[in-house]
Design a protein around this nucleic acid. Structure first.
Length: 427
RNA sequence: GCGAGCGUAGCCAAGUGGUUAAGGCAGUGGAUUGUGGUUCCACCACUCGCGGGUUCGAGUCCCGUCGUUCGCCCCA
C-alpha cells in the first residue's frame, strides 16, 4: 500500500482518546492554577548545547537519544527531549529571577527521544511538568510532590506508589561514587556485562540492575544515605517529615537514581504496576545546580514531569464512558430538515449538546442511530411538525414523548436541562 | 542499539502448502413509505503489510523491508 503512515514512535490521538487528554489538562490547569503556578510555553527545539550542558553529556538521553540536526544556517538544533532545561533557559533569558522570590511554573507539550518504541514509550511523547524555582526550602520539595500526588489522585488513579531518595549534593555523590567503585571492583568479573560497563561510566546505575547475580552483589553495597553531608541529611529528614505531616506515603529507596545529571538532594518517582516495564508515571526532584550551570545566578529549584501517555494508559484501563450528546435530531422532508438544522443551532446556543442526523433515511433508521449515539432525547421533525412549527421530544430512556412549540424552546430550556440531568443520573 | 513474537476487511479473528479466504462486531439496504434499544434476510477481502524467492501450486515455507508488540538498555 502506498498510503503514508505516521512515523515510527509517533501516533495520532483520535477523538475517542482526546477526551482523556482533556480531562488531564483540565485537572492540571485547575490544581496548578490554584497552587499559584503559571503556565510557560517554550520552543520545541533549542540549541543542542542547551541540552548537552543542562542534562549532561554522559547521560543516555544526550548520548544516544536526541533528535539533533543542522538547520540551513548550519546551527546544531535539537528537538527537546525534556523541558526543564528549556524552562530554565527561558527563566534566565527573561530575568524571571529578577522579580525576586520564587517563580512557580508549569508546562505541557511534546518531547522527543530517539528510542525503540515500547508500551508507554514513544519517540514523540508528551509531558506535563511543574518547576518551583528559587527556593532551597524543604517545604518547596514537599509542595511540589504534594501537587503531583494531588493531581494524580484527583484523576481517580489508584494503585500508585512513590519511591523517594536523596542523591545529595554533587560532592556527596562524588564520594559515594568512589565508595561504590571500591565496593564493586573486586566483584567486577561476577557482574553482568552492562554493569561492568557501568562501573566506569555510571556506577550508581549498577544498583538498578535487573540481573539476579548483580542484584545479589548490590545487596550489600554502600547506601547513598550514609554518604550524605550533614546539611544534605538535614534537608532530606525535613522533607520526609513534611511528607509524613501531609499524609503522603512513600517508600524509601536508596537505589533510586535519576538519569539526568542535574538532580541534587530529593529524587522521587511515582510508579504504577499496571504499565509493564515503563512503570514511572511521574519523576522529579531537586536540581540546585542547573540554573547556574546554564549561566544564570546560583538558584535552587525543584520540579517533576509526568509522562502523559503513561498516565492516559492508566486512565483508559480504569475506563470512563465517552460523553454522549443531549439531543439527537431526526428529520424528514425539506422544510422539517431545514427547521431541524436551525433547532440544533438554537439548542447549542442555549448550551445543549445536539447532533443532527444528516442521512435523510427512513425514520426507523434515524431512530436506530439516535439510540446508538447514546443521546438522552430525540427531537423529531416531519411534515406535521413543520406545518405546526412544533417538535416532538422523545425521551429515549423512558420512551415518553411530548410535543412542544418550537418557539417555546427558550422558555423551557431550564426545565429541559433539569430533565436531562435527571435522566443522565438515573442511568 | 540488542533479543523474541506478531502483521488476514473499520475492529476482533479462523486458517499450519492444494484454491470458492470461516465466523463475530460495526456498517449499508430491506422486512417496518413517521418512532429506537429485540429479531429476521441480503450486501460488505479478485485478496492475506510491502518486495523478492522456493514450489506444479504460498495467507501458509525462505530472504529482505516496513510497521507493531513484549523485553533489555534508558526514561516520563
Amino acid at each position: 500500500m502506498g498510503a503514508i503512515q505516521a512515523l515510527r514512535g509517533t501516533r495520532d490521538i483520535l477523538p475517542e482518546e482526546v477526551s482523556y487528554w482533556q480531562r488531564v489538562e483540565t485537572a492540571a490547569r485547575d490544581i496548578l492554577g490554584r497552587s499559584a503556578y503559571r503556565e510557560i510555553r517554550t520552543p520545541i527545539f533549542e540549541q543542542t548545547d542547551l541540552f548537552e550542558r543542562g542534562i549532561g553529556e554522559a547521560t543516555d538521553v544526550v548520548g544516544k537519544e536526541m533528535y539533533t540536526f543542522k538547520d540551513r544556517g548550519d546551527r546544531s538544533l535539537t528537538l527537546r527531549p525534556e523541558n526543564t532545561a528549556g524552562v530554565i533557559r527561558a527563566f534566565i533569558e527573561h530575568h524571571l529571577h529578577a522579580q525576586g522570590g520564587v517563580m512557580r511554573l508549569w508546562y505541557t507539550g511534546p518531547m522527543f527521544r530517539y528510542e525503540r518504541p515500547q508500551a508507554g514509550r514513544q519517540r514523540q511523547f508528551h509531558q506535563l511538568g511543574a518547576e518551583l524555582v528559587g527556593s532551597p526550602d524543604p517545604r518547596a520539595d514537599a509542595e511540589v510532590i504534594a501537587i503531583a500526588t494531588d493531581l494524580l489522585q484527583s484523576l481517580g488513579l489508584k494503585a500508585l506508589r512513590m519511591d523517594l531518595n536523596s542523591v545529595g549534593t554533587i560532592a556527596d555523590r562524588q564520594t559515594y561514587r568512589e565508595a561504590l567503585v571500591a565496593y564493586f571492583t573486586p566483584h567486577q568479573a561476577e557482574l553482568d556485562a552492562d554493569s561492568q560497563d557501568r562501573l566506569t561510566r555510571n556506577p550508581l546505575r549498577i544498583l538498578d540492575s535487573k540481573d539476579e547475580r548483580t542484584k545479589a552483589i548490590a545487596q550489600d553495597a554502600p547506601s547513598i544515605l550514609d554518604y550524605l553531608s550533614p546539611d544534605s541529611q538535614k534537608h532530606f529528614d525535613r522533607v520526609r517529615q513534611l511528607l509524613e505531616d501531609l499524609g503522603i506515603s512513600y517508600q524509601l529507596n536508596p537505589r533510586l537514581v535519576r538519569g539526568l545529571d542535574y538532580y541534587t538532594h530529593t529524587a522521587f518517582e511515582i510508579i504504577s504496576d499496571d504499565l509493564g516495564a515503563q512503570s514511572t508515571v511521574c519523576g522529579g526532584g531537586r536540581y540546585d545546580g542547573l540554573v547556574a550551570e546554564l549561566g544564570g545566578p546560583e538558584t535552587p529549584a525543584v520540579g517533576w514531569a509526568i509522562g502523559l501517555e503513561r498516565l492516559i494508559l492508566l486512565l483508559q484501563q480504569q475506563s470512563l464512558a465517552a460523553a454522549a450528546v443531549d439531543f439527537y435530531l431526526v428529520s424528514r422532508g425539506d422544510r422539517a430538515e431545514a427547521q431541524a438544522l436551525k433547532l440544533a443551532q438554537t439548542l447549542r446556543q442555549l448550551g445543549f449538546a445536539a447532533e443532527l442526523d444528516l442521512s435523510g433515511s427512513a425514520f426507523g433508521k434515524q431512530f436506530k442511530r439516535a439510540d446508538r449515539s447514546g443521546a438522552v432525547a430525540c427531537l423529531i421533525l416531519g411534515d406535521a411538525e413543520a406545518d405546526s412549527e412544533t417538535v416532538q421530544i422523545k425521551w429515549l430512556k423512558s420512551g415518553e414523548q411530548e410535543a412542544i412549540a418550537q418557539s417555546d424552546l427558550l422558555d423551557k430550556a431550564d426545565d429541559l436541562r433539569r430533565r436531562i440531568t435527571d435522566f443522565r443520573e438515573g442511568a
